[in-house]
Simulated assay, not measured.
Amino acid sequence: MVVNRDGPILVEGPVEVVDEDGTTTRSDRFVTAICTCRRSRTHPWCDTSHRRRKPAVEPSRSGPDDRERPTGEEGPRP
């Protein structure tokens, strides 16, 4: 099993997943990607929906010109 920080869990061989409601789903693929973001339309299998998630915003290291302007102010920044 391989756990990807921002992606699915990859499991080798045939896989059976038991959902919270007791439903069992099976995959006979050589490697199966199990969704961890819960955005997949084919849950519990990954459909790469995690790729559409926006990356976390990093703290700004820029100067005062990069601050947000008040509403209604138009035109280029000084």
Rank of each mutant, 00 (worst) to 15 (best):
R77G: 03
G13K: 10
R69E: 13
P78W: 08
P14T: 14
R38E: 03
R69M: 14
R67S: 00
C46M: 13
G7F: 03
T32C: 04
V2R: 10
S62T: 12
D47W: 11
S62V: 09
R53G: 03
M1D: 04
R77Y: 01
T71H: 11
C37Q: 13
R29P: 00
H50A: 10
T71A: 15
V31H: 09
K54C: 01
V57L: 05
V15E: 00
D66K: 12
H50S: 03
N4S: 13
T71Q: 14
D6I: 12
R53F: 09
E68M: 12
R26D: 01
R5H: 08
V17L: 14
D19H: 10
R61Y: 05
D19S: 13
D21T: 01
R38S: 09
V3W: 07
A33R: 08
R69A: 15
V57E: 09
R77W: 03
G7R: 05
H43V: 07
D28N: 02
P78C: 07
G75F: 10
P59Q: 07
P8L: 09
C35L: 00
R26F: 09
R69L: 15
T42P: 03
R77S: 09
A56V: 15
I34A: 00
D21E: 04
V2C: 01
V57C: 01
C35Q: 02
T48A: 12
I34K: 00
P76E: 10
A33M: 12
R41E: 12
V57W: 05
E68A: 15
V15C: 03
T32S: 15
R26I: 12
T25V: 14
L10G: 03
M1N: 05
A33N: 08
R26N: 06
E16A: 13
T32V: 15
V31Y: 07
A33F: 09
C35S: 01
D19C: 07
R61M: 04
R67I: 00
P70T: 11
F30H: 12
T32R: 11
P64H: 04
P76C: 06
V3D: 08
T42D: 13
V17H: 11
R52C: 05
E16H: 04
A56G: 12
P70E: 11
V57Y: 03
N4T: 14
D28W: 03
D19R: 14
F30D: 13
S27K: 06
T25C: 01
T48G: 01
D66Y: 08
T48Q: 10
T24R: 14
D21P: 00
I34H: 00
H50D: 06
D28L: 02
H50Y: 10
P78V: 07
V57S: 06
I9C: 04
D28Q: 02
H50I: 09
T32K: 11
V2Y: 06
R77L: 09
